[in-house]
Design a protein around this nucleic acid. Structure first.
Length: 350
DNA sequence: AAAGCGGGGAT
DNA sequence: ATCCCAGCTTT
């Protein structure tokens, strides 16, 4: 076991990428990088990390910031609960740990947004503590190396791989071992068509020996894609428009958007005025002029398809319903964190 | 245990 | 189209 780990670490030392959050000990920076990289590729998160660290260089600065600004720095990256939890955890650290990032694994694990993987990553990278990381890369490398076909998204699989990863951990250098194992999965033992001929572990790989590389790891997929229909109302009132913060347990929580009527279909010029929600929103307004109705947009996410249309309209006066919204000059919307869907619409209008 | 949460790149 | 990425939280 230890020999295999040494082989991977040797591979790592000659093949690793130079990354700004690598070869540092600052738990804060490691923490930020780990949260950004959850379900996110290095290339996608790199600039977010650099900008985030520049604006929020330490936990105190982050804790003092407004959540709105933290979300603005997260705009476009997705999984926005990461940003909300990051901010929440920063406040936890200030109040519960005197602004010093905790060094005890159990305490790290209690911070908002930090689960088993991230706690192990921080404690091993920053403090060299003996906790094995088990991320998507590790599942893939270990399942192939040891020829394990237990589904990695089952309770049994999670426990089995956690135990295996613990046994596989090189206790003499846990941080380096973990980094190397993940980088090996990211660059060498890739999901599709890995170059096994150049792999230093090819002779030790159970999956290669039994021609199972392409079928491991096993995952019981289920992803049901649900469709939703968002009708956005881009209201022009002199030079102003109206926006609102999304609330509730739903997509894009705490991000801003135009007045929205969700329906089981998209509005068109033909079915717009008979719609009860539409009529209600503009009740009491003397004149509503439809300026433009955008072509339908299909915003595809992993587990959702958002169909959206942007209806631009001008109004002659305000009513009671619009008091529930924030009235801002149109250009000022750039200061608010919005979803990628809204961002793309705004870009298309420039 | 299952569902929900974003967005993008590789194949 | 499908998979999956340095996963976590809520139901």
């Amino acid at each position: 076991m230890q020999l295999l780990s040494k082989t991977i670490v040797n591979w790592y030392n000659t093949n690793k990428r130079e990354l700004p959050w690598r070869d540092i000990n600052d738990p804060y920076r490691i923490w930020i990088s780990e949260i950004i990289l959850q379900q996110t590729r290095v290339n996608q998160g790199m600039n977010y990390y650099l900008r985030f660290i520049e604006r929020f260089p330490n936990v105190s600065v982050l804790a003092c910031a407004e959540e709105d600004e933290v979300l603005k720095y997260w705009q476009g990256l997705g999984y926005y609960s990461r940003a909300r939890n990051l901010h929440k955890a920063a406040k936890q650290i200030v109040t519960e740990f005197n602004s010093v990032f905790p060094t005890v694994h159990q305490e790290v694990l209690k911070l908002a947004g930090i689960g088993v993987y991230t706690a192990a990553a921080i404690c091993s990278f920053a403090y060299n503590q003996p906790y094995p990381v088990v991320d998507g890369n590790v599942y893939r490398v270990l399942s192939r190396l040891f020829g394990i076909d237990t589904p990695i998204d089952s309770g049994k699989g999670i426990k089995q791989f956690a135990r295996l990863a613990q046994d596989f951990l090189d206790l003499s250098q846990p941080g380096l071992h973990n980094q190397a194992l993940m980088e090996f999965g990211a660059l060498q033992c890739v999901p599709a068509s890995p170059d096994c001929k150049s792999c230093p572990l090819v002779m030790d790989c159970r999956a290669f020996a039994s021609d199972m590389v392409s079928s491991l790891p096993v995952k019981t997929q289920k992803v049901k894609v649900k469709e939703r229909f968002f009708n956005y109302l881009v209201i022009e009132f002199n030079v102003n428009t109206f926006i609102r913060k999304r609330t509730g347990a739903d997509i894009w929580k705490n991000l801003y958007e135009f007045p929205l009527i969700e329906s089981d279909h998209l509005f068109t010029a033909d079915n717009l005025f008979p719609n009860a929600d539409f009529i209600a929103l503009f009740n009491g307004i003397d004149m509503v002029n439809i300026v433009n109705i955008s072509v339908p947009v299909k915003h595809v996410l992993t587990h959702r398809i958002i169909n959206a249309v942007f209806i631009t309209l001008s109004i002659s006066n305000k009513n009671r319903q619009l008091e529930n919204y924030i009235e801002i000059p149109v250009r000022q919307i750039d200061e608010y964190a919005v979803s990628r869907l809204i961002e793309l619409f705004l870009e298309s209008r420039r």
